[in-house]
Computed example of a mutant assay.
Amino acid sequence: MPPILAYNESSLPASSLDERLQLAAQHHLALEIANSGNLDWEPYLKANIPIAAVQAYAMHDVHPLHPDAQHRQQALHHVHQTLEIAAQLQVPRIVTVCGFGSDVVDSPFERCLDFFSHCAAKAKALGIKIMIEPLSPRRCEAMTEPYRIGQLVDTLAEPEVFTTLLDTGHLLDSGYDLEAFLPNWPFPTEELQLKGPHSTPPDFSLRPWLMQLPFQPAVLCVEHRQPITLSEFEQLISAIRLEFPLNND
């Protein structure tokens, strides 16, 4: 089945939540939304707009690689809470990471393996996939090598629960050539986030990236931190739809 096209809700060129929801509906987009720990999910439920994924966004601060055990426990609680929100919204997947920042725990692979193992039962019971996203070394001191995340998913050995998410922006910031990297990526991947380097919007010339995929992601999601005008947003969405067959067209 072709992927659905989603947009990170905070990246949309509109100032209020109502305007962003209207913009997504107008352009037939699904949304990826962020749970920072206090997400009010009722407006999304009422809007009746497809939600592609819920980000466990508080993992910017609390995460499996944090050297403080209490922080790691808070991270586990946050992932469980995000799974519950996804279940309430009937969202089939959440976004997680291994860590942020320069202060990280010893034995990072083993810490992440233990952490995510404690998320598996709840995710399986709710029927929700946990996507683990490799970040660039600009964001974290450990577990940034994409193949290490793939090995983590393989070692967890719960393919109905754990999968990877690739972000082209983080890959570019890590120094990868996307046209060389993507055709050789061997791990299951549920979502491809489209982003340029340094959190810019992705380039309009998307075909060299998209045509190299050896996998069929369930979701293509545009995400960027740099603001974009409404005109640029519409050009970008049109370019993606010209380059790739989508399920929500």
Rank of each mutant, 00 (worst) to 15 (best):
S205N: 11
L213A: 09
A218S: 06
D40F: 12
Y57H: 13
I51C: 05
C140W: 09
V91Q: 05
L126S: 04
P208K: 10
M211Q: 14
S11E: 07
V54A: 00
D61W: 12
Q151K: 02
L206K: 03
D203M: 08
L210A: 06
S11V: 04
T82M: 00
L172N: 05
Q235P: 02
P137E: 06
F100S: 13
C112T: 01
A14F: 04
F162M: 05
T164H: 04
F244S: 08
F187P: 00
Q212D: 11
S238K: 15
Q212W: 08
E243R: 11
S231K: 15
Q73C: 09
V161L: 02
P13A: 02
L236Q: 02
P13N: 03
S107F: 04
C140P: 03
N48R: 14
T229E: 06
G150N: 00
F162K: 10
A86Q: 05
E141N: 10
L29I: 08
P43Q: 11
P3I: 02
L135E: 01
R111H: 11
L76P: 06
R207P: 04
T163S: 13
H66R: 09
T168Q: 06
V95E: 12
G101M: 03
Y147P: 11
D18S: 15
R139N: 06
G37M: 07
A14D: 08
D167W: 02
C98F: 01
R139P: 08
P202Q: 07
I4F: 06
S10W: 14
V153D: 00
V105G: 00
K195C: 12
E84F: 13
D18G: 13
M211V: 15
S174H: 00
L152I: 00
L246M: 03
S238M: 15
R207L: 13
V54K: 03
P67W: 01
A53Y: 10
M143K: 01
E223S: 04
Y176E: 09
L182Q: 04
F116Y: 12
Q26H: 12
D154I: 12
W185Q: 08
L236K: 04
F215Q: 04
L31F: 01
L220K: 07
G196Q: 04
G101L: 00
T189G: 08
I128A: 10
E232M: 12
G127N: 08
A218N: 12
G99C: 00
R72M: 06
Q90R: 10
A25G: 15
F115E: 06
M1G: 03
I4K: 05
P13C: 01
F109A: 01
H27K: 02
T96L: 10
L45Y: 08
L65F: 00
L31N: 05
T96C: 14
K129I: 12
Q55T: 14
L236V: 03
Q74E: 13
S117E: 14
F109C: 05
E133G: 02
S174Q: 03
A121Q: 12
M59H: 03
S199M: 13
I128K: 02
V79I: 08
T155H: 03
H77L: 15
H60Q: 15
P245I: 05
A120S: 11
